[in-house]
Structure formats: C-alpha cells, structure tokens
Design a protein around this nucleic acid. Structure first.
Lengths: 233, 233
DNA sequence: GCTTCAACTGACAATTGCTGGCAGTTGAGT
DNA sequence: ACTCAACTGCCAGCAATTGTCAGTTGAAGC
C-alpha cells in the first residue's frame, strides 16, 4: 500500500468523529504503531485538523471532512448563489456559516484562472426576515436529530396554545419560514410559522419515524390536498 | 520536498484549466520528467480527473478542483439549505447543478456517522418562478465574464425597448429575479426584471470596470436612494 | 504520590520506494 | 515521413519510510 493512500485511509477511519487509538489503526492498516504516529504528524503538518491527546486517542476536530472533489463551474455558481441567499434569508448562525463556507471555497478555488473573481449575485432582504429567527437554530437541531419540541404558539388569529411537536421539515416560503410537524395535541400534521412561535424548548426526547407520521406521509398529504397546509398558519 | 506535497503542487499547477507539459512542471518542481510521469500515474490512480494526451500535454478534465477541506456541521447545513432553495428558485441549469452538488457532497460526507441522513429543508415553489428563466443562463454568463448584452425589454407599463447593457449583478427578490446593469442607451444604471426580457443576445463584447459604472458605484447609489431601483421594473 | 494509559520522541539499521537517465514505443497532428 | 510529447521498461543509486527499542510526557484514576 502506498503511503499517500494510507494517509487517506487514516482520514476515513478518523472521520467518524469518534476516538481512535494509534494501536487499533496500526493493526487495521497492518503497519507499526510508530508509523501511525509519523503519519499523524504528516497529516497535521498538511493541515488536517486532528487532535491527539495523551492517554486518550485521536479525533477529528472539525466534524465534517471533505475529501478532494471536482466540481463543474455551474455547480460552483449554484453554491455561491445558494450561500448568497442563505446569507440574507436565514438565521444568524446560518448566515455566518454561509459566509464562512463561501469564503473557504473561494480561497481554495481562487488559484484557478477560470473561476470568476466575482459571482454577481445580490439578494434583497425580505421585509419579515429580520424577525422570527429566534428559535431557528433550536428547531433546526430538533429536525436534524429528530427531537421532540415543546412550543408556545400564537396563531394568526392570536390564539395561544402549547403543544409538543415532532418536527419533520423546515420550509422556506421566500418571506416566511415554517416548520411542519406531527402535533401530539391534535394527533395530526400541522405547519407552524416560525416567527409566531413564542417559546420553544428542546425536550431531549428522541423520536423515530412511525408509519403515518413521517415526512413522506406529510408530503403525500400536502400533495393530495394543497389547500390543507395553508389553514394552519 | 515530500512526495505527497509535490502531488498537491502538481494539482495546483494544473488547476488553471490550461494545458501543461510534463517538461515544464518538472522544471518548475525541480525533478526529472520521468518522476512527473510517475506522479501523474499516481494522481490518476487516486481519482484526480487529469487527461494526458500524447503530443499535447496534461489538463484537468473538471474545471474546478476542491482540495480536501474541513467544514463545520452548520456550514454543511447552510450548504444543503442553499442547494434546496436554488433547486427550487433558479433556472434549470442551476437547478440541476445544485442537485448534483448536494448529491456529491452527501456521498462523500455520508461515511461520517455524525452527519444527519436528512436535512429537513423544504422550499415552496414561487408563483412566478416557472416563467422568465429563459434568459438566465445567458445573463449569468454575461455577468461572470463581463460581456455586454443586447436585450429587448418590455417594461411593466408594456413599453418595449431595445438596449445594450453592461450587466453587473443578478438579484434575487424571493419571487422575481432582476439584473442590474449599466444601460448604454440611458447612460445610467438600470435594473431589469429577467422575466420581462423578451430577447437577449450575448454580443461577445467584453467590458471592463470603469469609474462610475461599476457594481460598487451602483450599490452605493442604491444605498443612498433606496427608491431609485424600484422605478425601473 | 503512585500507577496506568497512550500519545509522543529520538536513534539506528533494514528495506522499501522514489528518482534520474536512457532507450525505446505510441498516437496525434502536420 | 516527421515532429512532438505522452508513455513504458529497465537499472543503479539514493533518499525516504519503516520497525524495533528504549525512553518521556501529560492526563486521569486510585
């Protein structure tokens, strides 16, 4: 096995975000532990963010590692447009992230003479965009990790209610954001405008997909009855 | 110089999308030509899309090469949200590209156990989104490459006109797209709704930034007089 | 304070892989 | 037929990688 190949192998092994011992990796790749130590030196010298702690093991500092990739020019353009929109239309955390991502990509792709210096995408702020982002990060987390949420909601006709919901998807409507969820109170799907959620608490309760309550079920329902979703927010 | 470092060096050299001779690269990196041939073998074996043609030289097949990178989870999330929006709100070419990019990224980041299977972003179609995309690709190209455009425009009050414009920026307004440009006819900045451009031709004329006609000048103007832009479409 | 664990470091001999030079082949274009 | 430059195989020399061994270091637990 070539050394350069082994280095990629090591990255793939460490990529799961868990702790790894040099001993295990050495065994797995059939080289000596000493060699693994040297390999980690090389990787760190090349800028791969690996932390080694004495008596503990090795771990990737940044959760997501992207191996070398090839993009077409159009894909790169789509990425920059997407980041421009997100930088304008989403919550602060995502705004920062999109700017940072666009920066990272620009930096490494700039060397290429065929990449335009400027992408020329502008995005105009949406009137309601400033408000109602308070709970976005929490809701995004809940969607990602399938965690139940407890929310105080104030509907458009000003009726307040408290519910436990199983958030399935966040929707972007151009001016407002909604979260579609299974509502335990109503025992049905509901869509909530994020800017009208008063308080929002992560319960810590994980939920699994259950027949009749999945995102797919919801989307099917929406498709079969397009007016249905509009009623709830 | 370590071999693995030289391999990255070679990629950086070839990255400009132009043709390169093994001889030149060898000279630049101070190794023999034979070594360069071996290096290209290694790179190709590792999946870097390099084409070598006898009697011609070496070239990167895909225009943009992304070196290994590290992203935070939030950056990855921003990327997927951005791609979801672009997949819904932009022209066909960008739609395809955004889907393809999201797919590529998912594929290589899937191995990591900490990356969610599903991002849970939905984007609802905008009413006017279906129409008016006909000229988007051409306009995007013109903005990227600073090329003059000749357009037939039909303003909101149905007045038709033909103009030569220097497109500076494409703007996304949530429901409509506009292109801001220096208009040679009016000798001033104008913003045009893309869905109201009847015909649109790339002239092949390249233009450079000129004082008073740059994107920066335009943005300054817009900032100082917010109502100005709304008049023109 | 002692022990344990596993990351680290340094040294050295063995070996592997890389390198340069050379002589030739191949395929495309002129 | 000729040129160009990518490619291939071979070989000797050398530089990089490797395993072994014998340590040190820092954190955590007892």
């Amino acid at each position: 096995m070539r050394r350069s190949d082994r280095l990629s192998e090591i990255i793939e092994i460490v990529q799961d975000g868990r702790l790894h011992l040099a001993r295990d990796i050495a065994e797995c790749l059939e080289v000596s532990v000493r060699t693994i130590y040297r390999d980690f030196d090389t990787l760190v010298a090349s800028g791969v963010p690996i932390d080694g702690e004495r008596g503990v093991g090795y771990m990737l500092r940044e959760p997501v590692f992207l191996p070398p990739m090839n993009l077409s020019l159009v894909e790169l353009e789509a990425l920059h447009l997407g980041m421009a929109i997100v930088a304008e239309a989403a919550d602060t955390e995502l705004q920062v992230a999109s700017a940072s991502l666009a920066g990272k990509i620009s930096k490494v792709a700039t060397a290429n003479g065929r990449v335009p210096k400027r992408w020329g995408f502008g995005v105009y702020p949406f009137v309601q965009a400033k408000l109602g982002f308070k709970h976005m990060p929490a809701i995004r987390k809940a969607v990602r990790e399938q965690e139940k949420l407890e929310i105080d909601y104030r509907s458009l006709d000003s009726k307040a209610s408290t519910r436990t919901i199983l958030p399935l998807q966040i929707e972007y409507w151009g001016r407002v954001w909604t979260v579609s969820a299974w509502c335990e109170k109503r025992e049905d799907f509901r869509a909530f405008r994020i800017d009208r959620i008063v308080t929002c608490a992560l319960t810590g309760d994980h939920f699994e997909d259950e027949p009749g309550r999945t995102l797919e079920d919801y989307l099917e329902r929406v498709n079969s009855d397009l007016t249905q979703t509009d009623k709830n927010y």
